[in-house]
Design a protein around this nucleic acid. Structure first.
Lengths: 246, 246
DNA sequence: AGCCCGGTTTGATCTGTATCAATGTAGGAA
DNA sequence: TTCCTACATTGATACAGATCAAACCGGGCT
């Protein structure tokens, strides 16, 4: 009965947004000191989530949204027959759980792909605080809107692109997000398996593997298991803009 | 030259949300009379959009969100090479344009599939009013969250389902939305072409047509061009829950 | 060291959907 | 009415990606 609760329970080390080095990613700019202190009071506490554990599951009552402090998550949906669809990969500074607002219950699972730590932000208190801090309201709408735009992009990818285009779009997207976090745009470590990438991209794991091999063959990337080095980032971008058939 | 601007210009017939028979779909429940009158003052005016015309296009500056009073829209994205991805179909009482919040510009096109009328809601004023009406803030977050959940469902569909499952999910979704508007759950008129359905579902128009024929063959629906009659709605639902291969 | 095991790569073959092509149909304009 | 045009259906064939299968790798354990 190695219940997962032990290591995922809330702990009460207060998180100070005002001190967090991710605040540029996660929060609106230009908050006053006073506003920061209100925010610090709001954020419920950190929670550690070990690799493989769920932060929340589809059906769980919705209480909070979560900002990732460290680590890496996937969100996914399960069909009754067991088919899985990964709907997103999330990294430090990104915000998760907004799907839960509409039904007061989460609609997807959030699973840590490496040992991670999140800040829980009780939703009722967040709504309250937005009455006091206009910039926060504005910012949070932007965050949700960004999620909608991201989802549209994934639809485009799943509905209109071929396998190699999907993978190129995926790698470029990761590259850009790692860059925004101060990591190399061209050298990174994939936290997810080929199968999870495939699920996200609507492909089978073998197809992902073959596409990566093909990229390597044509000198676009070096692949060594989970370590990816993008050799020709412009060539990669061209994969996305070129005609369907050439 | 027959510039579309003439017929899509704003007109100033005031819209009264308090009188609108779609308010249950579009607004939070339980607003006081006073709150309604504030809301009536906010809504900018109606705008007619003729079949085939755009309400807004990708890149347009974001100023307002829109509630559909009457009619039917699609939203879509275009890739440089001309490929189109339809990202949604929207009907009366539904709200459009929230993708624009994040970048202060719309990221998709909204095109009327039949002569339609919308209520424009200036976004800056909406944010303002939410400070005064808590229920409105809560409701609007729910609306955005619902959009995120819907998008997740589309990802599931595009990433994990086969052609006939996608079409079944699509028809059942339409059926449910028509029902909520007081129309027949089993008899309806498709406003979009097979090609647009295909784009939405990540299929070619011929595949959509064949799948419809197959449903008709097996007694699930009657199809006569754009008129659809669902004969066996339970059979249809079973298409979604059964195993991938049987 | 040696083994195990989850994850990955690669090959051979199959299949669902795309593509190409021809015909059919309904509704609008003259 | 007849023609025209956009849309839809149906058939034949091609192909991208799925599936099945076998080897391969690398990291953790004893």
């Amino acid at each position: 009965m190695n219940a997962p609760t032990a290591s995922v329970s809330l702990n009460n080390i207060k998180v100070a947004c005002s001190q967090c080095n991710l605040r540029e990613l996660c929060l609106p700019v230009g908050l006053t000191e006073q506003e920061f202190s209100k925010l610090d009071a709001l954020v419920g506490g950190r929670r550690k989530v070990k690799r493989g554990q769920s932060l929340y599951r589809a059906g769980d009552p919705f209480e909070a949204i979560y900002a990732i402090r460290t680590g890496f998550f996937k969100t996914d949906l399960l069909l009754e027959d067991g088919r899985e669809q990964v709907t997103g990969f999330l990294m430090a500074g990104e915000i998760m759980g907004m799907d839960g607002i509409s039904n007061e219950a989460h609609t997807c699972n959030a699973v840590a792909l490496e040992d991670s730590e999140v800040c829980g932000i009780p939703y009722a208190m967040l709504e309250q605080l937005q009455q006091e801090i206009r910039a926060l309201q504005h910012h949070f709408y932007k965050v949700m809107s960004r999620e909608i735009v991201r989802d549209q992009g994934v639809m485009m990818l799943l509905g209109s692109m071929r396998a190699e285009e999907r993978l190129a779009a995926f790698l470029l997207n990761l590259s850009q997000r790692f860059t925004a976090r101060g990591y190399s745009p061209t050298d990174f470590h994939l936290r997810m398996t080929r199968e999870e990438i495939g699920s996200y991209l609507g492909l089978k794991l073998e197809t992902v593997s073959r596409a990566l091999s093909a990229f390597q063959e044509s000198g676009l990337v070096n692949v060594q298991q989970k370590h990816i080095q993008i050799v020709d980032i412009d060539g990669m971008k061209k994969m996305l803009s070129r005609q369907a058939n050439c």
